[in-house]
Amino acid sequence: MGTFKVNYRQDTALFQTLWVKVWLGILVVLLIVSPIFLSRYQISILNEMGIAVIGALGLNLLTGFTGQISLCHGSFLAIGAYTSALLTSKLGIPFWLSFPLSGLMAAALGMIVAVPSLRLKGLYLALGTLAFGFIVEYVIFHWGLTKGDMGMAVRRISIYKFAFRTEKQHFYLITGFAAIAVISAKNIARSKIGRSFVAIRDRDIAAEAMGIPLAKYKVMAFAVSSFYAGVAGCLMAHYQKWIVPGNFDLSVSIAYIAMIIMGGLGTILGSVLGAILITGIPHGIVYLVDIFKESYPGLSGFIVDFKLGLFGLVIVLALLFEPKGLFGIYWRAKIYFKTWPFKY
């Protein structure tokens, strides 16, 4: 077999084939024009999805890539949300500054949560993160500044003189941030840092023997993951303009786990697909309930309670039938079409 020159820069390129570029171009155009055709409610769903994409990328880097289970992802969204809410309203700090600060605050606390992960694994780590989640919830409930159950008003986003008011305006901002989040996460994943994360997940002892310092990279995984959650929480707070502790409770952490399991653990695309799906499900249900509301009047109350159970069910079913998630389905479809019409 002869050796031929390969251009490695090209081989590591983010978007490798023409087809990927074409599809991506179509997606970008669609995203830019879609608000023109969609209703306010529909755009609000896309906004919710965009924020979830950022949060899900963070959790997937930690759980899917590095193999560290976290049951407190919602708490890092809370930390980002309340940090930015307090900074902007109490100290008058502008959004462009409070946005990164909310991520950094979450990252700093994430590094503290990482400390037990250096000793604990699996279920024990999950319990540790659960405990951290309860502490955060307790603080938000009882700290005077955050106003507990009553909730907190949050300023609208304004960058220099421009204030974001409409769904449409928020859509472009959130989608822009989501795109940056996707690209940066993909870059981290394909760098030495992403490889070290996966190495730790797959074989931590071999990773160490290869020269990968476990502690450093586990702490980094928690920090990066919490940073994404923090900025997602910040966006959520300013977008909703009102936050209550219930926005960030355990069910939110579970929903994020459902996203990455459903989408595909350890893949960037999977995080995006899972976030879209899990955010979309409740709206889909509301849509169906609207149709059947006349014949079954008690349905809507039941659905609210049903949501969490549904995510639990989604997790179990995904684990049972498609452990690689939507990404696995996408992957098989891609291979199928690549080789079509041949079976193999």
Partner: peptide, 28 residues
């Protein structure tokens, strides 16, 4: 004790940790 979820290429690349010096921000 290979990293099962990685390709052959990435397994080998992962051993180059001491031959790359860039940090998180640059990776992003």
């Amino acid at each position: 004790a290979l990293f099962e979820g990685m390709t052959v290429l990435d397994n080998l690349m992962s051993a180059r940790i001491y031959h790359s010096n860039y940090g998180l921000l640059r990776a992003a």
